[in-house]
Design a protein around this nucleic acid. Structure first.
Length: 878
DNA sequence: CACTCCCGCCAATTA
DNA sequence: TAATTGGCGGGAGTG
């Protein structure tokens, strides 16, 4: 009801009997006072107050009961359906009201008065739709239950649905955090996308609902489980989830709710009949569905529908078909989301007139900046929370900031990945190509990270554009809400992102990821960087829109995370050997730096690890991410050595440290070049091995977030491209015009090693396209850019990515092997180990092996990816 | 009678 | 073991 205007928010309030305890509303905005007789109808009525309204008000004032009545009416009326009208309705509505009003007997609490819908309204009335970000409103189940005069059970029903839409998130036992609708659109967008993947075909293929039905029958099998069971939107971490995963927890209401919403979003008509929804939602095959199950499902759908209705997202209608009239619900919530995901999806980029990147970016940017809350950064996003399991465990503690970051990071990373991927495809022209990384957020996978990222968000780089760069989120957004500046993408120009360490070279499908060297500084830098970035961006025009943040850590992981380092390490190694044929190129500086010392091999391994591992992991999030500060050099020997000279352990105070280096010796970044292996055929990765301490770090715990400046180059590309990337990116990126940067820049080229391999150059300096005017120098002091961290998330995303990412749809993507513990072939099937399956299964799916298999196409792949995820998680624990 | 969907048992999970 | 969560379905209101 209140959805649209907050101004009107106040409403309903007083619940019938109970005295409300305002105190409990911790965060509530002051404004809300009770009572507005709101009648809002679906239609946006600018001015709520109609003559009738006044009347109503009076009435309500007079008696609470009356008020209730009114509410009910309001609530239900719209539902009552009618096909719809727009304005007229309201009028009628009012009229009707009056007439009918009397009928309602007030006293006895009719069933309706106890309806979930009404209850939900009351519930919602207590919290602002758009709470100030500053205030965190916590919801105590007990309190609410008592206030609303209902049993807790009912509150769960409401909260679960709200949680599925991320309007609230569970913080701890009995405690939920109210986020409001800030992220609703993002969530919906995600759902829509996810829905398209899952049900899209259905919908598209047939327009009619009826058809859908039929199709469903067939399709149901296919649609399966994996995705289904897990909360699509929950951006939880996969890993975690896997562990506990299946329990009923994530099973029903939440997921059902999301699926239900997805159906609406996917449906052209925006109308979904209950029975169809029920059928679709029933995991089992349709045929098997026993009636009882169906009935149960329907019951649940009503529950959900009531809540959604209260949220103003749907309304009840009836559709008449041959068979008669069937109950149905119509989506009345937002339909269009800011960006179309499609762009990402695959549509040929080329066709895009604008440089997608920019465009998308800009959009996103705006979005984020503006009203919507940056999905990325918004705290509320946290809701995204890590997998439930995890969450719950942690439940006692309120969301840690970390989580937030992670989420954000995840999303950013994903975006980035998506971009890259797309880019690759574009450049390559070959969609089929297997990409080493599939960064795209897959809906299924999305569980983990995906937040809100609307794919659309990703800026897609257009072919025309020479290069694009993605800014990686810098520090956690939290710290910088203002990231926006960075995001502008003004033109497609090259690449540098102010904050962002990643560079992608469009041209040859090369992607460069450049990390600012020092993470440490990031935090500090960011702000500055951002500013600079803006300017810079403007000046240069190439601004990356997305906000990828630098790193992400999983909340799960804590720095101290228990996770065994070793295992991951082991895995990594294994992987290395088996999978990655790496050729490491370590360019050393001719210069003095001792760092160079590291042997390529070592470097490689380290680097590799980083990459690989993180693919999944759940491990502890690298703490580093969390703080910019602490990232230390990884285990890389190289670094260590390097660091030794400096102080390995100590993360240099960043700036100084850096400055020194720059001054004295240019950085010499080492890059690891990963040859395309079977799996990776299309892309090569270059990671710089020697970074200043800050640059690459593997967290000790495996969580390594990788903050590495790295370059990914498609193998093909290598041949042709000369790519230059400066690890120290800073200069280029950072806006700082000062010339500090210069030193570093020119210095290192270590062509030699690279040369052997390819024509690619990586230089310390950032040399990018011409456009980027390298502003000469950045302050050495300010390490302009945060190093890029591949957050676990990212990694994970990579690994996790399904073969078919939604985005890719058609293109099978190969997962990075890195993740795989074993050298097994990449094929999806082979990949999944039996035991994994177990994890994978959802209650529903479990039973039906056949179904499982059936899912071949996408499903299978998905499954595999999922499994993979699971696997990892499972293994590590072991 | 068909829809809705409230109610609350009771199992799974957590604390 | 106690408390939370939440699946589930009987069966009661409503129209």
């Amino acid at each position: 009801e209140n959805i649209f205007d907050r101004s009107r928010m106040a409403p309903k309030t007083p619940i019938k009997n109970e005295p409300i305890d305002l105190s409990k509303q911790k965060g509530c905005t002051p404004e809300r006072n009770p009572i507005t007789p709101v009648k809002i109808i679906d239609r946006p009525q600018p001015d709520p107050w109609t003559p009738t309204a006044n009347l109503k008000i009076l009435v309500s004032a007079a008696s609470p009961d009356m008020r209730d009545r009114e509410k009910k009416k309001e609530l239900f009326r719209p539902i009552e359906n009618s096909e719809q009208s727009d304005t007229p309705d309201s009028l009628q509505y009012d009229i009707v009201d009056d007439s009918t009003v009397d009928e309602f007997e007030k006293q006895r609490p009719s069933r309706k008065q106890k309806s979930l819908g009404l209850l939900c309204q009351k519930f919602l009335a207590r919290y602002p739709n758009y709470p100030l970000s500053t205030e965190k409103t916590t919801i105590s189940l007990d309190e609410v239950a008592s206030i609303l005069g209902v049993e807790r059970r009912r509150i769960y029903d409401i909260v679960n649905v709200l949680e599925s839409l991320h309007l609230v998130s569970r913080v701890a036992k009995n405690q939920y955090c109210w986020h409001g609708r800030h992220n609703l659109s993002q969530t919906l967008k995600m759902l829509q996308e996810a829905g398209e993947l899952q049900y899209g075909e259905l919908m598209t293929s047939q327009h009619k609902d009826q058809d859908l039905e039929y199709k469903f029958g067939e399709r149901k099998k296919e649609t399966i489980p994996d995705s289904e069971d897990r909360p699509l939107l929950d951006f939880s971490e996969p890993d975690c989830s896997s562990a506990t995963a299946n329990s009923r927890k994530d099973k029903s209401l939440r997921i059902m709710s999301q699926k239900f919403v997805m159906l609406f979003l996917v449906s052209k008509t925006k109308i979904v009949t209950l029975d169809i929804a029920a059928k679709i939602l029933i995991e089992e095959t349709q045929d098997t569905v026993d009636h009882s199950k169906f009935k149960t499902k329907v019951r649940r759908l009503y529950d959900i529908a009531n809540v959604l209705t209260s949220l103003g997202l749907i309304k009840k209608v009836h559709v008449t078909e041959e068979r008669g009239r069937k109950p149905a619900f119509k989506w009345i919530g937002p339909v269009e989301f800011p960006e179309k995901t499609d762009e990402l999806r695959g549509h040929s980029p080329t066709s895009d007139p604008l440089p997608g990147t920019q465009r998308g970016a800009s959009v996103q940017y705006q979005t984020s900046v503006t009203g919507k809350q940056r999905f990325t950064r918004h705290a509320s996003f946290n809701s995204a929370q890590p997998c439930e399991a995890t969450r719950r465990k942690v439940s006692s503690e309120p969301n840690s900031p970390r989580q937030e970051k992670q989420d954000e990071n995840c999303s950013k990373m994903i975006n980035l990945a998506a971009v890259c991927r797309q880019k690759i495809e574009e450049d390559t022209g070959n969609s089929n190509t297997t990409l080493p990384l599939s960064l795209l957020p897959v809906p299924r996978d999305s569980d983990f990270c995906v937040n809100p990222l609307p794919q659309a968000v990703f800026p897609v780089v257009q072919a025309d554009v020479p290069s694009f760069s993605l800014p990686v989120g810098i520090s956690s957004q939290a710290s910088h809400p203002s990231m926006p500046a960075a995001s502008k993408t003004e033109n497609g120009k090259p690449t540098l992102i102010p904050n962002q360490p990643f560079l992608c070279f469009p041209s040859s499908s090369l992607f460069m990821l450049c990390g600012g060297l020092q993470e440490n500084n990031l935090s500090e830098l960011l702000p500055t960087a951002a500013d600079l970035g803006n300017r810079h961006a403007e000046a240069q025009a190439a601004v990356p829109p997305t906000v990828c943040q630098k790193r992400s850590s999983h909340k799960c992981s804590s720095p101290s995370a228990p996770v065994d380092d070793e295992e991951p390490a082991v895995k990594k190694q294994t992987l290395e050997h088996s999978f990655l044929p790496l050729s490491l190129v370590v360019p050393k500086n001719p210069s003095e730096s001792p760092k160079a010392e590291s042997s390529p091999g070592s470097g490689c391994s380290a680097a590799v690890h980083l990459e690989t591992d993180r693919f999944d992991l759940a491990s502890p999030a690298a703490p580093e991410a969390a703080n910019k500060e602490s990232i230390k050099p990884l285990d890389c020997q190289d670094q260590e050595k390097q660091s030794e000279s400096k102080d390995p352990d100590e993360p240099p105070p960043g700036n100084e440290h850096i400055s020194k280096e720059n001054a004295n010796q240019p950085f010499q970044p080492q890059y690891l070049y990963v040859q395309p292996t079977a799996g990776l055929s299309s892309v090569n990765f270059l990671f710089s091995a020697n970074q200043p301490p800050g640059a690459i770090s593997l967290a000790a715990n495996q969580m390594p977030s990788l903050s590495v400046p790295c370059v990914m180059v498609p193998s093909a590309a290598l041949a042709s491209f000369p790519l230059v990337c400066s690890p120290s990116f800073t200069s280029s990126l950072s806006p700082a015009p000062d010339g500090s940067f210069s030193a570093a820049a020119s210095t290192n080229f270590s062509m030699s090693s690279l040369a052997s391999t390819t024509p690619v150059f990586i230089s310390t300096t950032a040399i990018v396209t011409p456009k980027v005017s390298p502003t000469p120098s950045v302050d050495p002091q300010q390490p302009p850019h945060p190093a890029l961290h591949l957050s676990p998330v990212l990694t994970r995303s990579c690994s996790a990515v399904k073969l078919d990412s939604p985005v890719c749809m058609g293109h099978p993507v190969t997962l990075l092997k890195l993740q795989q513990p074993s050298s097994a072939p990449l094929t999806p099937k082979s990949i999944r180990p039996a035991h994994h399956e177990a994890f994978f299964k959802t209650p529903g799916s479990l039973g039906d092996p056949v179904a499982w298999k059936k899912n071949e196409g996408n499903q299978t792949r998905n499954a595999s990816s999922v499994q993979r995820r699971l696997e990892i998680s499972s293994t590590s624990p072991d």
